[in-house]
């Protein structure tokens, strides 16, 4: 996982626009990740890069990493999803409620959670495409709707996850590999395949690069954007399910408390994907999510005050994005 992504070999001819996203940023963020870990090693001692702590870091990156895999596709297409945090909560509460501690209900709970994800993704996608709504405002709106519905019904932890389901959060395979890391890798693999191995993926890059040009070359841009939104909401639903497995119950505050909306965008952007769409990819996002987890872990190891941590995070995110933006030296001045 620590080796740079092998993008160079991934079908160069698949899309004209795919050429553009192999910039320094995508591999740069992996270098930054290594550098930060070196700093952690120096400041926090050799245990910081020991196997146990590396596993901790990776597990910590799982919930954010999964939803960031969805956010990446939406951002690549030039859209944005601010509703994921509340969707995570909704799915967590609903699925834990359905499960109610009975292993027999697990399939139904997963199905309900994913179905809610698809539904919310469709609404978001339709609002952004057919409704011509600005994605930031539209998904802020759907997020608020979910927030209100959620907090009018549930004030406390709801339902409970049976032991079998909690394995997803705590189980290990081959004696050392946490199942949760495999889950993240699986979602990553699907996202990579979606972006790099399918026609949908190349259309997504094309639409994100220029909607007009994509449309003129026959891409059905609305469908592509709707598809990206459905995938993003699906990943949010998966994060919700995963958090139920970790927590053993559905907590209505789990999504907003994790600031998954803004943190997932931060992971994507720190990972080198352009917020305006069309350039970037999921490998960078994986590094971005890991980077945020490493920083978190390092601050904890150094016993940095929790609130100072928030300050440092803000500074680091801005600095990371600024360094990419300055290095890429794009000519255009249109920065949203």
């Amino acid at each position: 996982m620590s080796s740079p992504p092998q993008e160079r070999t991934a079908n160069p001819a698949r899309s004209l626009l795919a050429k553009f996203d192999l910039t320094d940023m995508q591999s740069g963020v992996w270098l930054v990740l290594l550098a930060v870990m070196a700093v952690g090693w120096i400041l926090a001692g050799p245990n910081f890069v020991g196997g146990g702590n590396l596993t901790n870091i990776a597990v910590r990156a799982v919930p954010l990493g999964i939803v960031a895999m969805g956010q990446t596709l939406v951002i690549l297409g030039g859209s944005l999803d601010l509703s994921v945090a509340y969707l995570i909560s909704v799915v967590a509460v609903l699925s834990a409620f359905v499960m109610d501690g009975d292993p027999a209900n697990i399939p139904l709970a997963i199905a309900v959670g994913l179905a809610v994800g698809v539904g919310v993704g469709l609404v978001n996608g339709l609002l952004v495409t057919k409704g011509r709504a600005n994605p930031l405002i539209a998904t802020l709106g759907t997020g608020l709707v979910m927030k209100g519905l959620l907090s009018s019904r549930f004030a406390a932890q709801t339902g409970s996850a049976p032991r079998e389901f909690q394995l997803l959060g705590y189980g290990r395979v081959w004696g050392f590999m946490p199942l949760s890391i495999l889950l993240l890798l699986a979602v990553f693999a699907i996202a990579w395949w979606l972006t790099r191995g399918t026609r949908f993926g190349s259309h997504l890059y094309a639409v994100g690069g220029s909607k007009e040009i994509a449309r003129l070359s026959g891409v059905r841009d609305d469908r592509v954007i709707i598809g990206a939104h459905v995938w993003c909401s699906l990943t949010a639903a998966m994060t919700g399910l995963f958090l139920v497995a970790r927590l053993g119950a559905g907590a209505p505050w789990i999504g907003p408390d994790g600031i998954y909306d803004l943190e997932s965008i931060a992971a994507v952007v720190v990972g080198g994907t352009a917020l305006l769409g069309g350039r970037g990819g999921v490998p960078g996002t994986l590094a971005g999510a890991l980077l945020l987890a490493v920083l978190d872990n390092m601050f904890n190891a150094l016993q940095v005050d929790g609130f100072l941590k928030s300050v440092l995070r803000g500074v680091i995110i801005i600095a990371a994005v600024a360094s990419y933006a300055l290095r890429s030296k794009r000519k255009d001045v249109d920065i949203a």
Partner: peptide, 16 residues
């Protein structure tokens, strides 16, 4: 809490 839901619907309506 439902006020927030209504605020959400309203701003969606406005942008659409």
């Amino acid at each position: 809490p439902l006020r927030e839901s209504v605020q959400g619907v309203i701003i969606i309506g406005a942008v659409v």
